[in-house]
């Protein structure tokens, strides 16, 4: 696939444009499945919050508002860098593309660091669901809030890890010249995934951190 002249398009495709459109459509289809994957959790969250508004408000007050807010800002900034990398590769500036991707990756890692710190705090406060859980006198449903908190943020963090892996792969591909102005698709495709994972957090942030009032 490295020789652009003798192999203008990979096997099932007639030309690169068709390949590119198929890649985008495929990624968007995958994102639709992701919406429903997280969607099951959001539906469950909605039902339980509707049933236990006070326990959920109490749970939200136990979370660190500033960590949630800072993490949202970190992720939004990382998304900007991914979008800039896409722009740079299309303008044939591979160095800038790599620089932007490294920045996005570092921000992603920073997000996970903050998240890990918050998990550690919850562990110390005995707010991890299970036999060691201490409801601090609140309703038992508090434990369900934290069950959802860990599952939702945990699955989100898992997606972030995949995203970081994809960014690492992109950096290598750009370095090898396999992703370039002639073949920029991979950046946009990984970008779509990264932005989407960002959007999941955009909803997790208010649902988990901002309902304490």
């Amino acid at each position: 696939m490295n020789d652009a002249l003798s192999h203008p398009a990979a096997p099932p495709y007639v030309d690169r444009d068709q390949h590119s459109v198929a890649n985008h459509l495929g990624m968007w289809t995958f994102l639709a499945t992701e919406i429903l994957f997280f969607g099951g959790l959001f539906t469950g969250y909605t039902v339980l919050r509707w049933a236990h508004p006070h326990a959920f408000a109490e749970g939200s007050r136990h979370l660190e508002f500033w960590i949630g807010t800072a993490n949202t800002a970190v992720l939004l900034t990382s998304s900007l860098f991914v979008a800039l990398a896409d722009l740079a590769i299309k303008r044939d500036d591979r160095r800038a593309a790599r620089r932007h991707l490294v920045a996005a990756g570092l921000l992603g890692a920073a997000f996970l660091g903050l998240k890990g710190f918050e998990y550690f705090q919850k562990f110390q406060e005995h707010l991890v669901p299970g036999s060691g859980f201490d409801a601090h006198g609140a309703q038992p449903a508090l434990q369900l809030f934290f069950f959802l908190y860990f599952l939702m943020t945990g699955l989100h963090a898992l997606h972030m890890l995949f995203g970081l892996g994809a960014i690492g792969w992109l950096l290598r591909q750009i370095g090898r010249g396999a992703v370039s102005r002639e073949r920029p698709d991979a950046v946009a495709i990984v970008g779509l995934y990264w932005h989407f994972v960002d959007c999941v957090w955009i909803f997790l942030y208010p649902l988990l951190y901002l309902i304490g009032g």
């Binding site: 639709a32 499945t33 429903l36 994957f37 997280f38 969607g39 299970g130 069950f147 599952l151």
Partner: peptide, 23 residues
Amino acid sequence: LATPVLAITLVLMAMERLWGVGI
């Protein structure tokens, strides 16, 4: 559009079995 919901439902069920806590 349907299969992802099965996946997350099974995750929720498995977590409940593993953790003893669940929605």
